[in-house]
Nucleic acid binder design. Structure first.
Ligand SMILES: [Zn+2]
Ligand SMILES: [Zn+2]
Length: 733
DNA sequence: AGCACGCCGACT
DNA sequence: GTCGGCGTGCTC
């Protein structure tokens, strides 16, 4: 048998194919799973070896040798390798894109996967003998030397962390008291030896105990469990109990949280109970810090990994359990490039590792409820609040024919005054940033719209701009109508900026805080505002969705949702579910045992069934009804869906491509809906259209698309537009 | 996805 | 005359 001569490489390109390369002259073939640097056109790319072959469909004479092998041992192996392949197939995504997503940025760029030695500063003999007194005129140097005389060495990165001065460091080095050196990091993989809990676990109530016993009863093998429990019902305590046997066995727990949920309090909660090495992967880390966590994890030196979506790909040699908190949260879905759902891939991963996965939520996704109904997930319910039970009073305010002040009804204003006078905080949600969502000419009725989008400009008063929230274009706030020249321009509708102004004028005695993209764009500003709220320095809290997620403000007793109509009639079939989740989340947070809470919903559709279901029956019945509706319409999650999206400068280009793509499915058992315009057809100067691909079950959708995709890729019309295929889309936008 | 090449309008 | 706009094509 001839030995293989070609290396098959997956590259991070949106091309569903591998590329063949030759090994370097006289060198052995790199193993599958190793990264290689390869020449690609005029550039060089980092790819992953996916196999070897004896034949090449590409003209062998044109093959190039690789530049270099970057890993001495395969980087992606075992279950993660399988996961990458499964995910690529499920999401119809090139393997190279999936693998790229799985690796930290530094490794995508070709850096070494081995931990680099760290730069340190060591005390010299001269430094040892130096009397601290001799430095009494240089306080910073004295302090640093005193530290080093006890600790002998300091890591370079720790110099600023411990607030030593760089100048002092240099001065001591110049004097020969310290010298620069290197130390190889060694990973401690024996963290589970002599493990002891950091605190006494709380006693579980009956439901919590049942939940824990159910999972443990399955022997810590694969099983997906939906842990359903309202705010305050003690989900985290259940997670913590479930982790114990896993940690004791020396296995790692992977905890996935929404982007907004990765707060110091969350981390502290885990760290207090489990004093084991913990890796935290949050958005604040730079690429090097991420690589370090990755290295520790791969070495088996971490007992717990807490992170957002991408942490799901952390290589843990001894994974024992996966926990996803707030599993319904939309941030688990990646919205660009390789569009995967972190929750679904986490379930796949748990299955590959044969470990349990716990999905927690107060408002489970319709997908997860569907998986319960078909027996894929088991349900664990926590109905009891850990603390004192309390009722939240709810009111739907009919906005029809009402005079509003900056979008506030008289009823809501009255309630606000009551709660503010009682010394409590009031929280108002308005999912519209800016001063006003439109600029209207009083003389000719013209609404000023973005020239590149099917959307109106939003007025931003403080910056004196109009801004399109869909493409980002902006210009000075016009003084005259662009159609008729009239100076009678009025804003139409209310945004958070206007609401803030109106309330500041109306209630000057109550300080307020506004939280939206505009007030939190600078790094750290969100934390500052949240802190202000927590300290009670703000009494009225105004914000968009941002304000709702993940924050708990115990002194808020009144929550107002100013305008829920948008969500009731959205083109997005998931909008109602998101409104329901938001509503339950904020309602669950209004008030506490000693202070009863109130929630006010303002709407022009007071009779809408969704609002009644939500306010009178709660989330469960709403979700059940929504699931039933989807099952009847064979929409996801009951049916399987993918969406083929195309955009081009001219609508007919996208239309033609999608029409031709539709024909690629002829004779295949798949339903095509479209081509049809996207909910906002023109965005950023491009016309956007799509076709929905629906099938009754996974297999049918999988097969049909696998058969059609090569034909679609071969379409010439596909070159005249940008297009992509997305499985399980979250919305049609 | 990059990154080239190539062909047209509008500027120093 | 060139600078640069983006349409088109290719990458083992
Ligand atoms: Zn006008
Ligand atoms: Zn726009």
């Amino acid at each position: 048998m001839r030995s293989p001569v070609y290396i098959q490489v997956a590259l991070p390109l949106p091309l569903r194919q591998n590329f063949s390369y030759l090994p370097r002259e006289g060198e052995a073939l790199p193993e599958t799973g190793c990264r290689v640097s390869v020449p690609f056109g005029r550039q060089s790319l980092v790819g992953v070896v996916v196999g070897h072959s004896q034949e090449s469909e590409f003209d062998p004479a044109k093959l190039k040798p690789i530049n270099s092998v970057l890993d001495s041992a395969p980087l992606v192996t075992g279950q993660l390798w399988k996961l990458a392949n499964l995910a690529a197939r499920y999401y119809f995504s090139p393997l190279g894109m999936v693998l790229q997503q799985m690796l930290p940025v530094k490794l995508r760029q070709g850096e070494s996967a081995d931990a680099a030695p760290v730069k340190i500063w060591q005390l010299t003999d001269a430094g040892k003998q130096c009397q601290l007194d001799t430095l009494k005129r240089a306080f910073q140097q004295q302090r640093l030397l005193a530290y080093l005389q006890t600790k002998i060495e300091i890591e370079d990165v720790a110099v600023s962390q411990l607030e030593f001065s760089r100048q002092a460091l240099k001065a001591l080095a110049d004097k020969g008291f310290i010298t620069e050196g290197e130390r190889q990091i060694s990973f401690d993989t024996n963290w589970a030896n002599n493990f002891e809990l950091g605190e006494t676990p709380q006693t579980l109530n009956r439901e919590q105990a049942v939940a824990v016993a159910t999972v443990n009863g399955d022997g810590l093998n694969y099983g997906a469990y939906l842990l359903e429990g309202v705010t305050g019902s003690g989900k985290t305590e259940v997670y913590l109990h479930l982790m114990e046997p896993v940690i004791r066995a020396g296995k790692s727990v992977l905890v996935l949280v929404p982007e907004i949920g990765l707060t110091p309090q969350t981390i502290e909660r885990f760290a207090r109970r489990y004093p084991v090495p913990t890796g935290v992967l949050h958005s604040g880390l730079n690429d090097n810090e991420r690589l370090q966590v990755w290295q520790q994890a791969k070495a088996g030196a971490l007992g717990i990994i807490i992170g957002t979506r991408s942490a799901l790909f952390t290589d843990l040699p001894n994974l024992g359990m996966i926990i996803i908190d707030e599993e319904h949260d939309s941030s688990f879905k990646q919205q660009d490039g390789f569009r995967y759902h972190g929750r679904d891939l986490a379930v796949m991963r748990a299955n590959l590792h044969n470990v349990p996965i716990i999905l927690g939520s107060a408002t489970p996704s319709i997908e997860s409820l569907h998986n319960i109904s078909i027996g894929k997930y088991r349900r664990l319910q926590l109905t009891r609040r850990a603390g004192v039970a309390r009722e939240v009073s709810q009111e739907i305010v009919d906005l029809r024919l009402q005079n509003l002040d900056a979008g506030l009804s008289a009823q809501l204003l009255t309630k606000m005054e009551q709660h503010l006078e009682a010394g409590n905080q009031v929280m108002l949600f308005l999912n519209r940033r800016g001063f006003a969502p439109a600029l209207l000419c009083h003389e000719c009725g013209h609404l000023h719209g973005c020239s590149r989008c099917d959307a109106f400009y939003t007025v931003h008063q403080s910056s004196n701009l109009v801004q399109c929230h869909h493409c980002g274009s902006q210009k000075r706030l016009p003084r005259q109508c662009e159609e008729c020249g009239s100076t009678q321009l009025f804003t139409q509708g209310v945004g958070t900026e206007q609401l803030e102004q109106a309330l500041a004028a109306r209630y000057p005695q109550y300080p307020l805080v506004r939280i939206d993209r505009d007030t939190t764009s600078r790094k750290g500003s969100l934390d500052k505002l949240l802190e202000k709220i927590r300290r009670g320095e703000a009494r009225i809290l105004i914000g968009t969705q941002m304000l709702a997620k993940g924050h708990h403000f115990p002194d808020v007793t009144l929550v107002g949702l100013l305008d829920v109509d948008g969500a009731l009639f959205s083109a997005d079939f998931r909008a109602s579910e998101r409104l329901a989740q938001l509503y339950i989340q904020v309602a669950g947070r209004a008030g506490r045992a000693s202070k009863p809470g109130e929630v006010v919903l303002q709407t022009h559709q007071p009779d809408h069934p969704l609002l009644h279901q939500l306010t009178t029956l709660g989330y469960g019945p709403f979700a059940e009804a929504a699931l039933k509706e989807r099952q009847e319409a064979l929409l996801p999650p009951a049916g399987q869906m993918a969406i083929l999206r195309a955009e081009a400068s001219h609508a007919h280009q996208a239309q033609q491509f999608l029409a031709e793509a539709n024909h690629c499915f002829d004779q295949l058992a798949i339903q095509r809906v479209g081509p049809m315009p996207a909910p906002m057809e023109r965005k950023a100067g491009k016309y956007r259209l799509h076709t929905l691909l629906l099938a009754n079950d996974r297999k049918r959708l999988q097969q049909a698309i696998e058969l059609a995709l090569p034909k679609i890729e071969a379409l010439a019309s596909g070159k005249r537009c940008r297009w992509h295929l997305e499985r399980d889309p979250q919305d049609l936008l």
